Amino acid sequence: MSFELCATIAVILFAMGFNYTNGFHDAANAIATSVSTRALTPRVALAMAAVGNLIGTFLGGKVAATVGKGIVRLPEGSASLGVVIAGLIGAIAWNLTTWYFGIPSSSSHALFGGLVGATLLSGPGVVLWGGILKSVIIPMVLSPIIGLILGYFVMLGVLWAFRRGHPGTLNRGFRGAQSVSAFAMSIGHGMQDASKTVGIVLLGLTIGGYESMTRHQWWVDVLTALVLAVGTYSGGWRIIRTLGRKVIHLDPPQGFAAEATASAVLYTATAYGLPISTTHTITSAIMGVGATKRLSAVRWGVAGNILVAWVLTFPAAGAVGAIVYLLIRPLF
């Protein structure tokens, strides 16, 4: 077995490791609101999210192409495979750190940051800053703003449409509706986050000379989908508690409005091949929905801590990716 083949297999294994951490780290994106409103039991919600992620994996081809071709350009060879491995380790390290502290940061931006940090030190590798600005930075800034504003107005629409309804009846009805919105949210998570892992696997296969970025085998989608589903079902309870309880106490209509808003943003971004953060999207939607009650209903101190993590994710994962690359470069 050649060294390049071993390195390519290592890329796939580390990509699946990142994919697994992405699953339990971002499980909260799809189910935190449904669990906190008691629309779904935790295990039922996790199982549903796992199935939704599995389905969504096969629908995010444009996002996979953006990640595989639009972030960095690396020449074929084992040295470039070392860059991808270092970037994945940087992303995994940041995911585990933020999971430990219960902070809902973006696995997507951890992945991009780790890959960019390692590529900057690689020599022949090129960071496509134009692609990062268009596909990462601008969507990173706009998606939370859109989620916040849209969530606010969607919730206002719900309040107006059901203003004469009985609270008990409405809560029961919206708990049922949340089963649909949470499932839609989990599909959107698969369309976005699983597709990013697919893009990284295809990048590794292309660098190793075993695949073309213009096509890929079905097994890449299936493997990614299954690992993400297993990671999701494992559950990231620390982050679920943060999103479901610490930012704002949600009732079923608010939970439905937040999930419907986030799903709409995710589906739209996927249609245009924009790899946005599901974490940023659902968190900002929750804040927007909560602000319709009163501004003080949102625990802005917790929200501020989340914002700090958002800002730090890209450079922190990038720094770890760069350090890991320096350590493993002699091996490649």
Rank of each mutant, 00 (worst) to 15 (best):
N171L: 10
H189N: 07
A65R: 15
M287Y: 02
A297H: 15
L250R: 06
T278N: 09
A194Q: 00
A316F: 13
A86N: 11
A225Q: 12
V158D: 13
K293S: 02
M140N: 08
G321P: 12
Q254I: 01
G114R: 09
S296D: 10
R238A: 07
S234C: 00
V116R: 13
A7S: 13
G52K: 10
L81V: 04
L120P: 10
T119H: 07
N53F: 01
T57C: 05
I9T: 06
T57N: 06
D193V: 07
T270H: 03
A47C: 14
G176A: 11
S179Q: 11
L205G: 15
Y325K: 02
G173W: 09
L295A: 04
T232P: 03
H280K: 01
V84Q: 04
A50S: 15
L243R: 01
P167K: 14
A27Q: 09
V230P: 01
L327A: 08
K246T: 05
V44D: 11
S296H: 00
S284R: 02
F24K: 03
L121P: 10
A264W: 05
D193P: 09
S36A: 14
V320P: 13
F183V: 09
Y272V: 00
G23Y: 06
V67F: 09
T261A: 07
A65S: 15
G17R: 03
Q254A: 13
I71P: 15
E211L: 11
P330E: 02
Y267F: 15
G301I: 07
A64K: 10
F174A: 10
F24I: 12
I132M: 12
R294T: 01
S263K: 01
L13W: 02
T242M: 04
M287K: 05
N95G: 02
G168A: 14
G190E: 11
I328M: 10
L226N: 00
L228A: 05
F101Q: 08
A86F: 12
Q178L: 10
F58N: 06
Y152T: 00
T313E: 08
P330F: 05
L205Q: 12
S195L: 00
A260I: 12
L331A: 15
G235M: 03
V72L: 09
T21Q: 05
R172P: 00
T283H: 01
A79L: 15
I9N: 00
G290A: 03
F58Q: 06
P124K: 11
L226H: 03
G56H: 01
R38V: 01
I200W: 06
W219G: 02
L54Y: 08
L5Y: 08
R163Q: 15
Q254C: 04
F112R: 05
G131N: 15
H249F: 06
G130L: 14
N171E: 14
F101P: 10
S135V: 08
G209P: 06
G209H: 10
V35C: 10
L54I: 06
G165D: 13
A86M: 14
G117S: 11
W94M: 04
A322Q: 07
T292S: 03
V67H: 11
V324Q: 12
T98F: 00
P315G: 12
V136M: 08
A269I: 00
E259A: 09
A291V: 00
E4S: 09
P144S: 01
R163W: 15
I282K: 02
I137V: 14
I282M: 02
L307Q: 08
